[in-house]
Design a protein around this nucleic acid. Structure first.
Length: 291
DNA sequence: ATCCCGCCGT
DNA sequence: ACGGCGGGAT
């Protein structure tokens, strides 16, 4: 593709975003702490669910210092219902690290961000792009899917990141990353709506007739289907967290609390993992949220 | 049943 | 590279 073509497509896409992009709360913020929180929430939790929880969460923990002063259990409680509670524990540890290592100021250096618990390649760059407006490129599941279809081939992690980097213009990273991510979220979905896509005329996969397998399917960063939730260890973990939000649970009642009556062995095995994850503490014969 | 602005330990 | 990790909405 020509450089001229790339410029045309880029402008087409950002114009589409200005017109059709969703008005999401965090897109009005450039506060690094707010962006770090929202991006952490958005790791595998849907946008509509984060929208209604971000405000109250930020009121409870308005700064890294405020969260660092709270207990891990407090953060978990405020996190309740968002799922993958390890993220709440990681966030608490990250707040403490920011307070102790960076004077309470969210760092902007990639290496500093990547060193924070629960902050990986996506979230680190998201903070840099969406808060500090630095010229980086993020690759999430949406963008990975768009890029793979655009090139009509599966991309390895480094390939996807390099390709994404090459598309960013100086000073235009915020709007570009939002635009291409929004395209993946609204149109270039797992089941794509190519008829409404503003850049389909230059999309390799579309022009090839959308052959199977979808090149996005084996591309790095594109999430795949997960194992069944009903009857899983995850379900039992979730049940126990919900109980602990109200009161401590004695080890004798653990199997009931986790929804596995008569299977204390399983309850014990799974709760061990939760202790390792920092989600629960054992005190005497009972379990509670971490102090 | 499927999907969701990933990260981490293996 | 792969599997575990919540939970609600459709």
């Amino acid at each position: 593709m020509t450089v001229k073509g790339q410029c045309a497509d880029r402008q087409t896409l950002t114009e589409w975003f200005e017109l059709h992009g969703r008005d999401l709360p965090w897109r009005h913020s450039r506060d690094p702490w707010t962006i770090l929180i929202s991006e952490t929430m958005l790791q595998q939790t849907q946008v509509v669910r984060v929208v209604e929880r971000l405000g109250p969460f930020m009121e409870r923990f308005p700064s890294p210092e405020a969260m660092a002063a709270a207990s891990a259990g407090d953060v978990i409680t405020e996190w309740s219902g968002l799922g993958y509670n390890r993220r709440a524990v990681a966030l608490h540890r990250t707040a403490q690290a920011i307070y102790e290592l960076h004077g309470g100021v969210v760092p902007s250096a990639l290496a500093d961000l990547l060193a924070l618990p629960g902050v990986g390649p996506y979230t680190a760059r998201a903070v840099r792009v969406f808060a500090f407006e630095l010229d980086d490129a993020v690759v999430d599941t949406n963008i990975g899917r768009v890029l793979a279809r655009w090139e009509n081939r599966s991309l390895k992690p480094a390939e996807a990141q390099d390709f994404a980097n090459s598309l960013v213009r100086r000073g235009g990273a915020w709007i570009w990353n939002q635009s291409i991510m929004e395209l993946g979220a609204l149109l270039c979905r797992p089941q794509p709506h190519c008829a409404a896509c503003p850049v389909s005329r230059d999309c390799g996969w579309f022009l090839a007739g959308q052959p199977t397998p979808d090149p996005a399917s084996r591309t790095a960063g594109v999430t795949t289907g997960q194992s069944r939730f009903e009857g899983s260890d995850r379900q039992g973990r979730g049940r126990l967290m919900r109980h602990l939000a109200r009161q401590d649970v004695d080890e004798a009642n653990l199997d009931d609390a986790m929804g596995w009556p008569g299977d204390p062995a399983r309850a014990d095995r799974v709760v061990q993992g939760m202790v390792t994850d920092g989600l629960v503490e054992r005190l005497g014969t009972s379990y509670r949220l971490p102090a």
